[in-house]
Design a protein around this nucleic acid. Structure first.
Length: 428
RNA sequence: GGAGAAGUGGCCGAGUGGUCGAAGGCACUCCCCUGCUAAGGGAGCAUACGGGCACAAACCUGUAUCGAGGGUUCGAAUCCCUCCUUCUCCGCCA
């Protein structure tokens, strides 16, 4: 959520910055709403103050055993107007909140301005895409030949956009997640957490998935009429660890790493990436989350992105780092770096990690605070990034490490997690 | 799933209709005192939002908040209803 003070003080300026994201803020409509709110709230509070002080008088008179009927009849006179005002204010407040809740974060000044992904700016490339002496196969073909990727059976069990892994590929998938977790806990100072995969609406609101993006989520209705949602990323449960909390200054930064499945309905992406494991309803991801002092969040974004890059480097997968432009960033982000891994079969770089600083946007929605140097509660800054998407990492390894005979040599860095497995080959 | 008990500020804890946003204690901050010692004295110390206010801080003032939501009342931490959570016992179960 944006700082409401900023929006009140400078609606035009906020609108201009949002316009760079392609979002039209109706500043005029907001100002009408704001004016209405101000009048109504002031009036309501006046009436409440009057009622409170008169009621206090009643108490004092009765305490002394005196007659309070004059005061009682005076207070009775404001009852109707007060009630009407309170009801109107509640309705207005709801409209007001709904208006503010769907406004995305303001882009940081360093974010390149652009309409869509074509406006993104490449920051660096690492590694050199390998040249194959043969026609490189894609992961679907490789996986099916190896007998470890079975999309047909997944379709039978669940439907399209699900996958089923077996044998060495399933083992590789598990090893990747373990390798990432162990690297981030052992080398980057993160604390491993295990979290619920179903979360309540408040948590989804806190990180910004609700109210605007419900159609991207899997919703689970319950018998009592309430609902839970399957997490689209570990960011949701992990960041919400600090929802409504006031953390001691000395505890910052909080750094969590978490491996979970992620569930996305992928509404509106029909026909996109339908082949293979690139875009699934369910995929595993190792997520990095940091809760930091506001003065440290930009430094933390660079660190966190570096932690995700370290995984790609250890796996020796060529990648590039891209700064997303204003028009391509997610709802809650102030700035985002995408890491894109080289996929030889597609002859292109594909997103494998997204690292963002949300500044106080999420913290304000979830009232995640810390006690600052003056001992006062202050909103923290939150960040997260994939470190990495496990399924896409698996795809990248299959494709980049494939041999002419269709076998796949596994990266050295993964050996300790593979129980002696060095190569994927078709089962006899 | 059944029976019972309970949810109050950073923490502990008092408060069963009226100057209660809430005693007291701990922790914390500042000041004083003390030649050392987890000693003593004083003051301050919840959050959100609004108004004063034209930007910020400070300050003053108001409103709301005692698990959440609704209700009764001139007035609710206190009474009523619904829900949530925790604890104890029973049942069931990875």
């Amino acid at each position: 959520m944006l700082d409401i003070q900023l929006l009140r003080a400078n609606p035009a300026q906020v609108a201009a910055r949002l316009a760079t994201r392609g979002v039209a803020l109706d500043a005029a409509a907001f100002e009408v709403l704001e004016a209405e709110r101000k009048t109504l709230q002031t009036r309501t509070q006046e009436l409440q103050a009057k009622r409170n002080s008169l009621s206090k008088q009643v108490g004092m008179l009765k305490g002394k055993g005196e007659d309070a009927s004059a005061v009682l009849s005076e207070v009775a006179g404001i009852g109707d107007e007060l009630k009407a005002n309170e009801e109107k204010l509640a309705v207005l407040q709801e409209r007001y909140n709904a208006f503010v809740a769907v406004i995305p974060n303001l882009p940081h000044e360093s974010v390149p301005v652009g309409r869509d992904e074509t406006g993104n700016v490449e920051i660096l490339r690492w590694g050199t895409p390998r040249s194959f002496g043969f026609a490189a196969k894609d992961h679907v073909e490789l996986g099916e030949r190896l007998g470890g990727l079975d999309f047909e059976t997944a379709v039978k069990i669940s439907g399209s956009r699900f996958s089923l892994m077996k044998g060495g590929i399933a083992r590789l998938h598990r090893a990747l997640a373990q390798f990432m977790l162990d690297t981030h806990t052992g080398e980057h100072g993160y604390t491993e957490v295990y979290v619920p995969y179903l979360v309540n609406p408040d948590s989804m609101f806190g990180t910004g998935q609700l109210p605007k993006f419900e159609e991207d989520l899997f919703r689970v209705p319950r018998a009592d009429g309430s609902q839970l949602y399957l997490i689209p990323t570990a960011e949701v449960p992990v960041t919400n660890i600090v929802r409504g909390e006031i953390v001691d200054l000395a505890k910052l930064p909080l750094k969590f790493v978490c491996h979970t499945p992620c569930f996305r309905s992928e509404a509106g992406s029909y026909g996109k990436d339908t082949r293979g494991m690139i875009r699934q309803h369910q995929f595993d991801k190792v997520e990095l989350v940091q809760i930091v002092h506001p003065e440290k969040s930009w430094e933390a974004l660079e660190d966190l992105t570096g932690h995700a890059e370290a995984i790609l480097k250890k796996l020796e997968l060529p990648y590039r780092k891209v700064a997303l432009c204003t028009g391509d960033m997610g709802f809650s982000a102030a700035k985002t770096y995408d890491l894109e891994v080289w996929l030889p079969a597609q002859n292109t770089y594909r997103e494998i990690s997204s690292c963002s600083n949300f500044e106080a946007f999420q913290a304000r929605r979830m009232q995640a605070r810390f006690r600052n140097e003056k001992n006062k509660p202050e909103l923290a800054h939150t960040l997260n990034g994939s470190g990495l998407a496990v399924g896409r990492t698996l795809v990248a390894i299959l494709e980049n490490y494939q041999n002419a005979d269709g076998t796949v040599t596994l990266p050295d860095a993964l050996r300790p997690w593979l129980g002696g497995l060095e190569r994927l080959a078709p089962e006899a």
